[in-house]
Deep mutational scan, measured.
Amino acid sequence: NITNLCPFDEVFNATRFASVYAWNRKRISNCVADYSVLYNFAPFFAFKCYGVSPTKLNDLCFTNVYADSFVIRGNEVSQIAPGQTGNIADYNYKLPDDFTGCVIAWNSNKLDSKVGGNYNYLYRLFRKSNLKPFERDISTEIYQAGNKPCNGVAGFNCYFPLRSYGFRPTYGVGHQPYRVVVLSFELLHAPATVCGPKKST
């Protein structure tokens, strides 16, 4: 009989979020998941679920829940969905086509923008091939755009693969920082350890 609540607040209220190319993952297990707390949290810009209804989450049990978190621009949030393409979905964070879970995003301009620009948040701009679902690539190898080998030196046709967002408070909404948490639900042939409040007695 599990009684402790799942530590969703640790994920959602973290002081610093990860850059999207180096997205953070927390495994959540052996706890009671009260999703209504999240669902009623006012400032969400997006709360979209795939393969599961957000209002039914509290009735369900899962083997594991993974909480992935990172920061992207407002106009990139739409790429955090199954079957998407674009710089983020291709080179930074890719969801599987059969994704079961929820994508939760909110504007973090007050936290993550600075006058003069916040350059701490990076994304991958160049990559030889697209990421596989949930693949994480933190390499900083110089990207070779031409035929000539770069030998690890940036220059003509040789690019550092990461780019900084440089968030400023005055940017338009599409270019403002958004914090994103992706909850993915794993249902294995194993005992369920993460259940909603109704199922955990």
Rank of each mutant, 00 (worst) to 15 (best):
N1S: 01
N4A: 09
N4C: 14
N4Y: 02
N4F: 10
L5H: 08
L5C: 01
D9L: 08
D9M: 13
E10V: 12
F12M: 06
N13G: 09
R16V: 09
R16Q: 06
R16C: 10
F17W: 14
A18D: 09
A22G: 07
A22K: 03
A22H: 07
A22S: 04
N24T: 13
K26Y: 12
K26I: 14
R27K: 11
R27N: 11
R27I: 15
I28W: 15
I28L: 07
S29F: 09
S29D: 04
S29N: 02
S29I: 03
N30E: 12
V32N: 12
V32Y: 07
A33G: 11
A33Q: 03
S36R: 02
S36H: 07
S36Q: 03
V37A: 15
V37S: 10
V37W: 06
N40D: 07
N40P: 08
N40M: 13
N40Q: 09
F41N: 00
F41A: 03
F41S: 10
F41V: 14
A42T: 13
A42G: 14
A42Y: 06
A42L: 08
A42H: 15
P43T: 13
P43G: 13
P43Y: 05
F44Q: 11
F44W: 06
F44M: 06
F44S: 05
F44H: 10
F45M: 06
F45H: 12
F45V: 08
A46T: 04
A46K: 04
A46N: 14
A46V: 13
A46I: 11
F47W: 04
F47Y: 03
K48S: 02
G51R: 06
V52T: 07
S53D: 05
S53M: 12
S53N: 15
P54Q: 10
T55A: 09
T55D: 03
K56M: 04
K56G: 07
L57W: 09
N58E: 04
N58V: 02
N58T: 06
D59N: 02
D59K: 01
D59M: 11
L60E: 14
L60T: 14
L60S: 07
T63Y: 12
T63A: 02
T63R: 14
N64A: 15
N64Y: 06
V65F: 02
Y66V: 06
Y66M: 00
I72L: 07
R73G: 06
R73S: 01
R73E: 12
N75M: 11
N75I: 02
S78D: 05
S78Y: 12
S78R: 02
S78K: 15
S78T: 11
A81R: 06
T85K: 14
N87E: 01
N87F: 06
N87I: 08
N87M: 12
D90E: 12
D90K: 14
D90T: 14
Y91M: 04
Y91N: 04
L95M: 06
D97A: 00
D97N: 10
D97M: 08
D98A: 04
F99W: 09
T100K: 05
T100R: 08
T100I: 15
T100V: 02
A105S: 10
N109K: 04
N109Y: 07
N109W: 00
N109M: 05
N109D: 08
K110F: 10
L111D: 09
L111C: 04
K114M: 05
K114Y: 01
V115D: 00
V115M: 03
G116M: 00
G116I: 00
G117K: 00
N118S: 00
N118K: 00
Y119H: 12
Y119Q: 05
Y119F: 12
N120I: 09
N120S: 09
N120D: 07
Y121Q: 02
L122N: 15
Y123K: 04
L125T: 06
L125A: 13
L125G: 15
L125M: 12
F126I: 03
F126N: 07
F126H: 14
K128P: 03
K128S: 09
K128L: 12
S129N: 07
N130T: 01
N130E: 09
L131V: 06
K132H: 10
K132Y: 01
K132C: 06
K132P: 02
P133G: 04
F134W: 08
E135A: 09
R136Q: 07
I138C: 03
I138K: 08
S139E: 04
T140I: 04
T140C: 03
E141R: 10
E141C: 03
E141D: 09
I142T: 06
I142F: 08
Y143Q: 06
Q144M: 06
Q144H: 04
A145N: 12
G146A: 12
N147I: 04
N147S: 11
N147Q: 10
N147H: 09
K148I: 14
K148W: 11
N151S: 03
N151Y: 10
N151D: 01
N151C: 10
N151Q: 12
N151T: 15
G152F: 02
G152V: 05
V153E: 06
V153M: 10
V153K: 05
A154E: 13
A154Q: 07
A154P: 07
F156T: 15
F156S: 12
F156L: 12
F156C: 10
F156W: 01
Y159R: 11
F160A: 12
P161S: 09
L162V: 01
R163V: 04
R163W: 01
R163E: 14
S164M: 07
S164D: 11
G166W: 02
R168M: 10
P169N: 00
T170L: 10
T170P: 00
V173K: 02
V173D: 08
V173W: 14
V173N: 05
H175N: 13
S184V: 11
S184A: 06
S184L: 15
S184F: 05
L187W: 03
L187D: 02
L187N: 09
L187A: 11
L187C: 12
L188S: 14
L188V: 04
H189A: 14
H189I: 14
H189V: 07
H189T: 14
H189D: 12
A190E: 15
A190Y: 01
A190F: 03
A190H: 14
P191K: 12
P191D: 11
P191V: 06
A192P: 05
A192I: 15
A192D: 13
T193Y: 10
T193V: 07
T193P: 04
V194C: 07
V194E: 14
G196Q: 03
G196K: 12
G196V: 14
P197F: 14
P197K: 01
K198I: 10
K198S: 08
K198W: 10
K198H: 03
K199T: 11
S200H: 15
S200K: 14
T201W: 11
T201S: 08
